[in-house]
Simulated assay, not measured.
Amino acid sequence: MLQEAAPRYRGHTSYSYLEPNLDYRVFELAPEVGRVPDYDLGLTEAQRQRAGRLLAENVVISLHEHPVVLPQDVSELRAYNRTARQHTAYAGLARSGLTAVFDNFMAGASCVTSENGWKWNDLIYALGMRLSDVAKQDYIVHATSLADIHAAKRAGQLALVAGLECSTPIENELDRIDILYGFGVRQLGIAYSQSNMLGGGLSEYSDGGLTHFGRRAVDRMNRLGIAIDISHSGDRTSLETIEASRVPVFITHAGSRTVWDIPRMKPDEVITACAERGGVIGIEAAPHTTLSVAHPEHSLESVMDHFVYCAELVGIDHVTFGPDTMFGDHVGVHQTYANNYAHDARPVPDHPRVPYVAGMENPAEAFNSVVGWLVKHDYSDDEIAKVIGGNAIRVLEQVW
């Protein structure tokens, strides 16, 4: 059910205005379409037409992606990332049906100046290189406001919203939040699994909560108009961030710990607190995260088990999707950077390992699959419009 390429896309490929092998190192990249078999939802022709119409008519927002193309040979990933010239997946995104994508630049994996990632200079490399390339074409536009997103919809373009999964690169420099805002960043996470100056990460055994500096950072984000993400924060830090923020916060990419009991998922208490303050949870689809007892082999079906549970828990007005996908071997990315990040040693349920998440392989496939699933399960047009973009817009109207 993959969409045809957007008419506005004219074939731009990353850094094509430069000289290959002179200005930048060339890697063989993974295909943006057809890397894995198509996922068959078993839709009727009428259902396919309805799904296509809903994608075309509505503002469709992915709350969390990494829409870059990875090397075909994942063993080259570190070398590729060290060049700071990750390639934006223009051709794949043109088939996604998306109006806007929250692009969480892979600053934790850039490792230009350090093998450990999340360094300020590495972040600036990752942000600046990608956005310089975006500026050389006219299909994807760097969006910093809701007006930009709506304008992209009208023009047949795709809006890229710059975000970061954590605020670790700001270190103890509050003004770096303003600098990032000036560079066009409109979404920041508090912590990425490990604790930082702002608060506790979800992989830590003990979460000390939002620090005094973290509270000042939340206040600064509120004042500037930067959306706050607590996906990778510890439970206490998440709750205290929700409480400290004057506007709703996002859980941009996670799922329910009740459905699948691992620390990466959010407990009911956090999901409910987020929703009670007007926030939204985006359902995650990175490999081996949003599994379920009913569907322990990761696929679209297990992802949607989390959607159904969260929608029943807090209401459909507070759920959306942040699939957290990329173009290439996502499992290989996790294996490549496994030693870079602290790992929670708490036991997790046994489950099959998959080479990719069927139906949610990349940003081109994800929302085609999600909308098709929702149509197949008889959700109304209004309900689908909310969960594929409307709910995110409502929060952004208050935050930005």
Results as ranks from 00 to 15, higher is better:
I388P: 03
Y90R: 00
P37Q: 09
N116M: 15
I384P: 07
L55R: 09
Q86A: 05
V112H: 13
T272R: 11
R154G: 15
G163R: 13
M304I: 03
I190D: 11
D133K: 10
G315A: 06
G225W: 05
D229L: 02
G189M: 01
A135Q: 12
L291G: 11
E165A: 08
P349E: 09
R78P: 00
G34I: 11
L396R: 01
I149G: 14
K376N: 07
L174W: 14
Q335T: 05
S203D: 12
E312K: 04
S14E: 12
S75N: 08
G117C: 08
Y205F: 11
H377S: 01
G328F: 01
V101T: 06
V259F: 07
N58A: 06
W118F: 15
R216K: 13
S231Q: 05
F327R: 01
G389K: 07
Q335H: 09
P248R: 14
D344M: 13
K376F: 10
D317H: 12
A159K: 03
R346E: 09
V357S: 02
A217T: 01
R216S: 03
L29W: 10
Y337M: 13
P287H: 14
E240M: 04
A147R: 15
F105Y: 07
F183D: 01
R220V: 00
T258R: 06
G332Y: 06
L160T: 07
R236A: 06
D350W: 03
Q47D: 11
E383K: 09
S114F: 04
S167G: 15
T168H: 14
P349G: 15
I140D: 00
Y181N: 15
R223F: 09
V141N: 05
D268F: 07
P37A: 04
E19M: 08
A5G: 03
I316P: 00
L396T: 08
E284M: 10
L41G: 08
V357F: 02
M106G: 04
E173W: 07
T325V: 05
R35D: 07
A152E: 03
L63M: 08
R257F: 03
L41V: 02
V314N: 06
M197V: 08
L224W: 12
Q157G: 00
S292I: 06
A273Q: 15
T211D: 10
H232E: 11
I228Y: 06
T290C: 12
L55Y: 04
E297D: 07
P169L: 12
A227H: 12
E361A: 01
R257Q: 05
L29M: 13
A345G: 02
L54S: 10
G11F: 02
D329L: 10
M360E: 02
S206R: 04
A366R: 02
D350F: 07
D103N: 09
R25N: 06
L224K: 04
R236S: 02
D317G: 02
D148K: 00
L210I: 13
V371A: 01
N340I: 00
E76Y: 09
V314R: 04
S167Y: 08
L174Q: 11
M221Y: 03
H298W: 06
E28Q: 13
P37F: 08
T13E: 15
A254E: 08
